[in-house]
Design a protein around this nucleic acid. Sequence first.
DNA 1: CGATGTTTTGAACCCGGTCAATGATTGTGG
DNA 2: CCACAATCATTGACCGGGTTCAAAACATCG
Lengths: 234, 234
Amino acid sequence: MEATTEMMNSNLKLTNRDRAVLMKTPFLAGLSGNSLIRMFANMTVVSLSARKSVFREGENADALYCVLSGYVRLYRLNREGREADIRICGPGDTFAECLIYGGNQFRYNAQAAEAVTLARFDLQAVRELAEQEKDISKAVMTSLSRHLLSTMDCVANDRLYTAPQRVANYILARCPVDGGPASIRLPFQKSLLAGMLGLAPEALSRAFSALRKTGVTVRGRVIQVVDVQALREV
Amino acid sequence: MEATTEMMNSNLKLTNRDRAVLMKTPFLAGLSGNSLIRMFANMTVVSLSARKSVFREGENADALYCVLSGYVRLYRLNREGREADIRICGPGDTFAECLIYGGNQFRYNAQAAEAVTLARFDLQAVRELAEQEKDISKAVMTSLSRHLLSTMDCVANDRLYTAPQRVANYILARCPVDGGPASIRLPFQKSLLAGMLGLAPEALSRAFSALRKTGVTVRGRVIQVVDVQALREV
DNA sequence: CGATGTTTTGAACCCGGTCAATGATTGTGG
DNA sequence: CCACAATCATTGACCGGGTTCAAAACATCG
């Protein structure tokens, strides 16, 4: 709408790093050279600054996306305008791929949680490619399957565990070691983690302080765990 | 384990009704005659009485299922043994299809909520068919997409709405009319609906009585709505 | 008509949301 | 490089929705 000078929707060439991310996603990994070329032919690179909208619920769906860098929030609104995150997509994650065979409208809002670059694939083109090339349909199925399993995990986590337990699960899933001390660094702001776990930011804060007695210390984005095994007991 | 005399795991012929259900699922609808025959060749019919387990989390995944009649609960357990439903599958629903390209172990428990008959498809055989036949891979993608969208709906519902609102949503989604009075019949026990909405049975009961003042009356499995439009305001 | 399983209701409790105020970080322009 | 603004994170107080446990009312089925 308004003619701002800030960068957005600019079509750029892939950097080497972006290209490496792209090749490792389930969505493109394992494609033959030919399929890869055809996918790239229907791809554009999109850069968005923080808080910009990628698309909104109800809009006509013309593309699916793959995150190259940064994080994207998928969320839905209720009538009063409260937001609930459905998924947080980071580098390598694909979103809106469920629309290849699932309808023609976006079913949720997508917003850049920070500055992001995305690979944008034309939906209709991917539909046609998936019909023709077996390795592409296989990649779509793999991507959909993973995505579905993780969303089912999300439902189960919401329903089974309390806030401190969900935070502990998150930390444990990212700890490189099986026992003893560990340290991880959050790849994004805490408010984003809160939404991802289905919590208000305040609840995440309280969960962290509740975990202090289990040997979890948080300073900025760095989380240190005294004993991974002990955290597993929570 | 024990040698009971009750019917279970008996391989039966399809009834006409079961066959009709099967042909309308996204998983088989739209298949060519040839693909259909090959799918049927890898299918067996399984009957289970209420509360019997179809499979358990962690078991080696060798099949996917399509519900022909009755309802199946997909749920997960926490360490203390509390259960949380992830999905309720009714006639025409497919489950464990995410394992075609998503791993070799069941990721949740599946249990017959009542007497059920299921179509059981060998997972490895479907994998191979999906590689060969384009219409089969397309059916798999369609099924996965729908399933994913509905699971994302579930996350959003859990996070956005209160118990009475979720119940109202459930009723509204099943009301044949847009306004005025309506009446629907629950296809299963209330405790199953409770789990489906992420509630304890008591909470569902209270939600129903909270909806009385909005013109919702419940008698047994029959739910009557005075004014559908009014219910939409909740 | 008992016997078993299901639903409802009541009471107590607790988790997490909301609001408000204070601290900590980050970013920006002088 | 510092000072200020803006955003983000933490903490406290409060409240409400939902769970849990226990008991009573209802259904269902033999």
